[in-house]
């Protein structure tokens, strides 16, 4: 297992420097300790997501990225630390209320309702807004503009869409709730490179519209291409954090992925 200490201290941007850019971050995670039941998987993670910016949460399999997202969404136990969304402390707030408070969650594995039609999936995405069905139907157009591939497939059961379209539907579903913060868990997993590009383009569009995005990825290049801030997790701890520009070489991140102690001669 990689010792977090092996990453040069100079690579770690201090939190204070990050926080000085804008007074109030959209999402602020401080000293988060989270896991499943009594099992702790993530220790002392701190990072921010700002309006109109992408924070990429990187790390290899099992580093604790998904656990961190789930803890922010309220699906996993938060042992200690704080999660603040738009100034609101989310401690003790049940998951469905976090969604209503402006959290948009796209879970891994293109988690759409496969037996329901594309339109029903999207309408359901707007459930948290608690507005009339007709008003939700007006919002559908915005999603179809972002993802033209979904247009014309409104009546198709989501399970019959291609993997890429299901991912777009999953993102569209979260967007229907008009979130302030969008959390994406491995949106590129299992997709063809061309489709990954399409998904990342939509991330850029959303970012330009002012949405804050927390992006969990294993595809380092794709994530770094859209990210403003990077936080790298390894074995449940933040080993590197800072603006994209402050990290000179992707190889350093990749090292954190594959571990220094690969046992291969350099």
């Amino acid at each position: 297992m990689t010792d977090p200490g092996t990453v040069p201290a100079a690579r770690r941007a201090p939190d204070a420097a990050v926080a000085s850019e804008s007074p109030v971050p959209l999402l602020s995670v401080r000293d988060l300790v989270a896991g499943y039941g009594d099992l702790r998987v993530v220790w002392d993670a701190s990072f921010d997501v700002r309006h109109g910016q992408v924070t990429a949460l990187l790390g290899r399999n099992g580093a604790g990225k998904t656990t961190t997202l789930r803890a922010i969404a309220g699906l996993n136990k938060l042992h200690s630390g704080s999660v603040t969304l738009n100034g609101q402390d989310l401690a003790g707030v049940p998951p469905h209320r976090r969604i209503r408070a402006g959290l948009g969650m796209v879970q891994e594995n293109k988690r759409v309702f496969k037996r329901r039609t594309v339109e029903a999936n999207l309408l359901l995405g707007g459930y948290s807004r608690r507005v009339r069905r007709r008003k939700l139907k007006d919002s559908l157009e915005e999603i179809y503009e972002l993802f033209p591939a979904l247009r014309g497939r409104a009546g198709t059961p989501a399970g019959q869409l291609s993997g890429g379209q299901q991912q777009m539907l999953a993102i569209g579903q979260a967007l229907m709730g008009k979130p302030k913060l969008l959390m994406l868990d491995e949106p590129s997993a299992g997709l063809a490179p061309a489709i990954v590009g399409e998904v990342m383009n939509s991330v850029m569009t959303l970012k330009a519209s002012g949405l804050g995005i927390l992006l969990v990825e294993q595809a380092v290049e794709a994530a770094v291409g859209v990210a403003d801030q990077i936080t790298v997790l390894d074995v449940g701890r933040v080993v590197m954090s800072g603006p994209v520009g402050s990290i000179p070489d992707l190889e350093i991140i990749k090292d954190a992925y594959f571990g220094r102690g690969r046992g291969r001669p350099e």
């Binding site: 469905h96 209503r100 309702f113 359901l124 459930y127 579903q173």
Partner: peptide, 23 residues
Amino acid sequence: SMLGIALLAVSEDREAALMRGIN
């Protein structure tokens, strides 16, 4: 109805329904 769509969503995937803001 939205309630109906929500009911079906809960039956298909509880956690995903929770993540759509359904109680």
